[in-house]
């Protein structure tokens, strides 16, 4: 038996990144400013966390030119969605006090 904390995803574990991924998991795509306001962080703080998530392959950044401005939106990759779901399962196991068996452990 393992403690479910071993199933937690290191990239998503940070509170801000977890909130960003949770917001994106509920939609197909969200604008950067909407995510910033929803997670309640500054532009620069969100940019840093999004870069970490993007480098991990969990988040995709889309930029579209609208007139003179650039509209930035974010979406969760399939890999990011899977990681988020696994992270949430681990959190639920921790919350319920359950231990988990590693794969292949009969």
């Amino acid at each position: 038996m393992n403690h479910p904390r071993g199933m937690l995803d290191d990239v998503i574990h940070s509170p801000v990144r977890f909130s960003v991924v949770a917001a994106l998991a509920a939609v197909d795509r969200a604008e950067f400013r909407f995510v910033r306001d929803t997670v309640e962080v500054t532009d620069s703080a969100l940019s840093k966390q999004v870069t970490v998530l993007e480098n991990a392959g969990y988040v995709r950044v889309h930029k579209v030119a609208v007139g003179r401005r650039t509209r930035t939106s974010l979406s969760l990759s399939e890999e990011g969605r899977t990681a988020f779901e696994q992270h949430v399962r681990a959190l639920r196991d921790i919350a319920s006090g359950e231990a988990v068996r590693p794969p292949g452990d009969g």
Partner: peptide, 13 residues
């Protein structure tokens, strides 16, 4: 953490 995810997810949805 689960409660935070639920809140943020609901807002986005």
């Amino acid at each position: 953490a689960l409660e935070r995810a639920e809140t943020v997810g609901r807002r986005a949805h």
